[in-house]
Nucleic acid binder design. Structure first.
Length: 401
DNA sequence: ACTCCACAGGAATAACCGGGCG
DNA sequence: CGCCCGGTTATTCCTGTGGAGT
């Protein structure tokens, strides 16, 4: 046991660990070179270059499946732009918001205010953490931009979740603001979206002004993924610390659905962590497989573990009901509630939770019509029962058999 | 061809919370 | 302090519907 520990220390001391640069395997790492995206980089840079002529660049709209390099391309180009802007001492501000991370529209506005320096600058017209109406916050931001004659590049990642949450009003006011701010500053919007049909959800006016310029990111092919991983492992790993087979397997696994580079790299990272932990000399296929398993198992476990009580009860009810349809599940759920002396929620709420669980990937639902016997949802649990038990045993030890 | 089950899932509304504002 | 604002959870009420049984 203690020799293991010694081993770890020895290895670390000798600098013999597998990983040379762990940053390079993080999801938000942007490498110097983005293979197969040179064209996109160029186009983006072209569009944004008008900033230096003090003109507003076209709004830009990027889509593509997750892990196709949208965010990476934008980050890279925008970083360079910022650097250049600093050299030239222009008033360019780049704002990066991830709409998914910021849980509400208001938080998005708050972050924008932080980034452009409004909140440091002006005490009476700042955008506080909460308390203002959306409209007031928006207009304070716009006024500040105009007053300071800022050139703002506003990057909104996962823009679809912003619109889902609070509609396109904000986007509308931003795009419209541009038409009014002929003098002074401007906002150029860069929207990034994973879903291709997102545009249909928008108000036509917003749609046309948001996508003055569009770019579609195609999924990577398996060969391309391999190349990407190859490049990345050169940065991340010490020489010989990763086998060819591991790289190939990662790319194959990540490419199975659609070429998702993020998934491929996460896979590689977790595999490397596992390999390090067991003191292996190099990362190979076995670790990749283990990593895959770990990733699949862990995500739902975490969600479930700190879900609200009734959500857990619903999951438990689904697990306990055999051949679960909504009605049966609701029955078991109410009896579970009685058992725990909890007031049961309405069926409406429970169906909402089930569709939420569907979204989270914990269950799968199918609307099935059984003719005479009505129309209902057939529910399947997508994660292993053991995981469910593990996640819920703290709360309902007595109910789990 | 018609009926009618057993729900799905939208809309309106209420209750509550956290947090700034005057 | 009470008030406003937006978010989230939950309820109530509702309209819509695929297809087995008749």
């Amino acid at each position: 046991m203690s020799s293991d520990i010694d081993n770890i220390f020895d290895k670390a001391a000798k600098g013999k660990s597998l990983i040379k640069n762990d940053q390079a395997l993080k999801i938000d790492y942007v490498p110097e070179k983005l293979p197969f995206r040179e064209q996109e980089e160029k186009t983006l840079a072209q569009v944004l270059s008008t900033t230096f002529r003090s003109a507003r660049p076209s709004n830009l709209f990027l889509f593509g499946e997750p892990g196709t390099g949208k965010t990476a391309v934008v980050r890279k180009v925008v970083e360079k732009l910022e650097k250049k802007a600093k050299e030239l001492k222009t008033n360019v501000k780049v704002v990066n918001v991830n709409a998914k991370g910021a849980s509400t529209a208001y938080k998005v506005l708050y972050e924008i205010a932080e980034y452009i320096g409004l909140n440091q600058e002006d005490k009476t017209k700042r955008v506080p953490f909460t308390g203002l109406s959306i409209g007031e916050a928006t207009s304070r931001i716009l006024q500040f931009i105009q007053k300071k004659e800022l050139s703002v590049i506003l990057v909104i990642d996962e823009i679809d979740s912003l619109v889902d949450k609070s509609g396109d009003d904000i986007l509308y006011s931003f795009t419209r603001a541009n038409q009014q701010m002929i003098e002074g500053g401007f906002i150029a919007l860069i929207g990034i979206s994973n879903s291709l049909d997102f545009k249909d959800k928008l108000d036509p006016r917003v749609r046309s002004s948001l996508s003055e310029e569009e770019m579609v990111f195609k999924p990577y092919t398996i060969d391309q993924l391999r190349e990407i991983l190859h490049e990345r492992s050169k940065i991340a790993f010490n020489h010989g610390a990763i086998s060819e087979g591991a790289v190939n397997l990662c790319s194959a696994m990540a490419g199975r659905e659609h070429g998702d580079a993020r998934k491929a790299i996460t896979l590689l990272r977790v595999a490397a962590e596992l390999a390090e932990r067991e003191n292996a000399v190099k990362v190979d296929e076995k670790h990749v497989r283990a990593a895959q398993e770990k990733i699949e198992k862990n995500a739902p476990y975490d969600v479930l573990k700190d879900a609200p009580t009734h959500m857990k009860l619903v999951v438990l009810a689904i697990a306990k009901t055999k051949d679960p349809y909504t009605g049966d599940v609701y029955d078991t759920y109410t009896s579970l509630c009685r058992h725990l002396e909890q007031e049961p929620l309405t069926q409406r709420r429970v169906t909402q939770m089930i569709s939420r669980l569907d979204l989270l990937g914990i269950v799968a639902t199918d609307v099935v019509s059984q003719g005479r016997y009505g129309r209902s949802q057939k529910i399947r649990i997508k994660i292993p029962l053991a995981t469910v038990k593990e996640a819920l045993k703290e709360d309902f030890a007595s109910l789990i058999d």
